[in-house]
Design a protein around this nucleic acid. Sequence first.
DNA 1: TAGTGGTCTAGACCACAAA
DNA 2: TTGTGGTCTAGACCACTAG
Lengths: 242, 242
Amino acid sequence: MLERKPSLTEQAKVYIKQRILDGEFEGERIPSETELASELGVSRTTIRDALSRLEIEGVIYRKQGSGTYVNEPGLQIKTRLEEIWSYEAVLKAHGYTPSTRILGVQTAPAGPDLAAELNLAPDAAVITVEKLFLEDEEPVIFTRNQIPSALLTEPYEREAWAQPVYQFLSNYGRQRLTYYISEIIPIIASPGLAEILHIAEGVPLISFSEIGYNEDNEPVLRAYSYLRDDLLRLRLIRRKIT
Amino acid sequence: MLERKPSLTEQAKVYIKQRILDGEFEGERIPSETELASELGVSRTTIRDALSRLEIEGVIYRKQGSGTYVNEPGLQIKTRLEEIWSYEAVLKAHGYTPSTRILGVQTAPAGPDLAAELNLAPDAAVITVEKLFLEDEEPVIFTRNQIPSALLTEPYEREAWAQPVYQFLSNYGRQRLTYYISEIIPIIASPGLAEILHIAEGVPLISFSEIGYNEDNEPVLRAYSYLRDDLLRLRLIRRKIT
DNA sequence: TAGTGGTCTAGACCACAAA
DNA sequence: TTGTGGTCTAGACCACTAG
């Protein structure tokens, strides 16, 4: 019934999630692991893997001895902090139809601080890109990304920066961004930021200060983001880890 | 060699993590899954489960065909947002020796808004508890928790509120808090907050607005927290989920 | 080509919840 | 007592990395 590739687990996950989104279980128990396994013709282990991922996503929860249930509150979460990879996608998930504007692209020496953060020589060239994400002409997110020039091995147009950074790095730098380490910092809009984001000076904002790492665990990206809380509220699920 | 209970997976996880923390692998590859399995006398599946959890915690990362490695940047993270359950524990992880002060305990009708959030009648009694977490007489976190009185089935002393809420709810309310849904909101210190937290008015703060759910997926707790960013910086790992 | 992690199976036993 | 999810095993094959 199912083919390999994508993995059976992935297919099972999508299948179960779809049935949940269709509202088929509506606050009830979903079929038991054994049932799902025989229904899809896979082993129970495969089903359990799929359910575990859905549990992490907050879509379901499990009660030993009782069953597996749909997690209604979890379904409401549009933006899961741990999974933000493209601000465009985040805005779309909120029902917006976002556009991206490239505000500036510059190349300059890293300087001592940035060099230390990205494991570079202080005079190594770094590209700084500033972007603005808008919903219907209204700015929502402002970002500043910094990438060592040496990483970009392929030629590209300025407009290529409009795509998500992780995609850009993959396409033009042969780098796979695998994770970020992020700090969440509350700030007050400076005059410059206020103008860019079309808000009053002194309005509180969330900012992210992040370093992105590739699959070899090397820092390849320094990023700062500033989010308008009135248009984009961050949410997450906090749970006990075993 | 190992006994059941706690689970073999849990024991394996602790064992491997300890060797990592001891610096035994120091930026190198850790033993292969097969090696670890035969070393501990368990199946490879068990080892893989343990490693998967360590990967989620950000302690290690894996590269197919190559090996499993220590994730140095991940080890630096003291406070993982998705796992905050006790602010005392968070402060300890930052090297502080925290104390807890109960600022107030009151009972009052829920009112329409809170009643809607907690699935209560508007006139149902709700207990509001305000606490302050300090490091060496310096306030770091201020919290306000609201719990339906009806949930508290056992008698308790006022001082019992000093323990973490999830523990309190378990001890005196027979409720198991299983997860929170949290909103992260940037705010500016109001005069009242500024006084409580010993900061200047207008300083930016992170606040959490949260609802806690029990194992039956029912809301049992409304919580607000205010964190001093200068003393406690929030960090998290963002990664792609399969 | 050898060794690593990634996926998957079939089956066993346990802990727990509900009838 | 029955059925659920939780843990664990032994073994198979695949995809990928590195020498």
